Amino acid sequence: MYRPARRPLGVAGVAVAAALLLAGCDSGSGGNEEKTSASTSAAPTAEPETLEALGKAVGCEGAPKEAGKTLDFRQGVCKSADGAQYVLLTFDTDDGQRGWLDTAQLYGGVYLVGKRWVLSADPRSAMEAARAELGGTIEDPDAKTN
């Protein structure tokens, strides 16, 4: 029987896993692959945000702690005064952002997506509130589409 070689997780895989763990996201899909459902919202910001600007917009206490930097994105984590935990990412390219999202959504989770930035929050209501401040679209790969 053929068994494909296992590849170790690369930097992007580790970043995805860390983002999902820090955000408290779980797949909840039981292995079922479903299409991504994006909710309608305000238009995303025209310019890419910085981790610091994203953190300030969602009410983080202090600057986000940088949790990783690759050639194409920066990742930070922070906690707001009301106890919400955020994973914040900024991307250098649109393609890099879409590639990261496509990979991350294989593991489940819900993301607020703007122009070259993504965030996730626990609890989800904090992320939905952040949309009022930042714009963007909430992408939920576990949402059922008709």
Rank of each mutant, 00 (worst) to 15 (best):
144 K>A: 15
43 A>W: 08
78 C>R: 06
85 Q>M: 04
67 A>Q: 10
97 Q>H: 09
117 W>C: 02
40 T>M: 13
88 L>D: 00
62 G>K: 05
72 D>I: 12
78 C>H: 02
101 L>R: 01
115 K>N: 15
140 D>C: 07
46 A>T: 15
52 E>N: 14
26 D>W: 11
34 E>D: 09
62 G>I: 09
132 A>H: 07
104 A>I: 04
108 G>M: 04
67 A>I: 06
124 R>L: 12
14 V>I: 13
137 T>C: 08
64 P>M: 07
51 L>H: 06
128 E>D: 10
75 Q>S: 09
91 F>E: 04
55 G>M: 05
121 A>I: 04
22 L>K: 10
49 E>S: 08
47 E>A: 15
7 R>T: 03
59 G>P: 00
111 Y>D: 03
64 P>N: 00
5 A>E: 11
42 A>Q: 11
82 D>Y: 05
137 T>W: 11
76 G>C: 09
70 T>I: 11
116 R>S: 09
89 L>Y: 00
57 A>E: 01
32 N>E: 15
58 V>S: 05
12 A>V: 14
118 V>D: 04
117 W>K: 05
65 K>L: 14
75 Q>L: 12
90 T>D: 03
131 R>A: 15
109 G>W: 02
28 G>Y: 07
84 A>I: 02
90 T>K: 07
14 V>E: 13
73 F>V: 06
144 K>L: 12
17 A>N: 09
27 S>D: 15
44 P>T: 04
56 K>N: 08
118 V>M: 09
12 A>M: 13
4 P>N: 08
115 K>P: 05
48 P>G: 11
53 A>G: 03
134 L>Q: 04
118 V>E: 00
133 E>N: 12
54 L>G: 02
107 Y>L: 11
94 D>W: 07
12 A>D: 12
124 R>M: 09
37 S>E: 13
11 V>F: 09
41 S>V: 02
68 G>D: 08
21 L>H: 06
34 E>I: 10
125 S>A: 15
82 D>T: 06
48 P>A: 12
53 A>I: 03
73 F>N: 05
66 E>N: 09
9 L>T: 05
103 T>R: 15
42 A>K: 11
88 L>I: 00
117 W>A: 00
111 Y>R: 01
69 K>E: 15
50 T>G: 01
102 D>G: 12
109 G>T: 06
115 K>H: 15
78 C>L: 05
52 E>I: 04
42 A>R: 13
86 Y>M: 02
7 R>M: 09
126 A>C: 00
58 V>G: 00
8 P>C: 01
29 S>L: 13
63 A>L: 12
72 D>R: 11
92 D>N: 11
61 E>S: 13
61 E>Q: 14
46 A>V: 13
132 A>I: 01
33 E>W: 06
49 E>H: 09
107 Y>S: 13
9 L>P: 11
92 D>W: 06
5 A>W: 06
83 G>S: 13
91 F>C: 00
1 M>E: 10
55 G>C: 00
59 G>D: 05
51 L>Q: 06
19 A>T: 06
94 D>P: 08
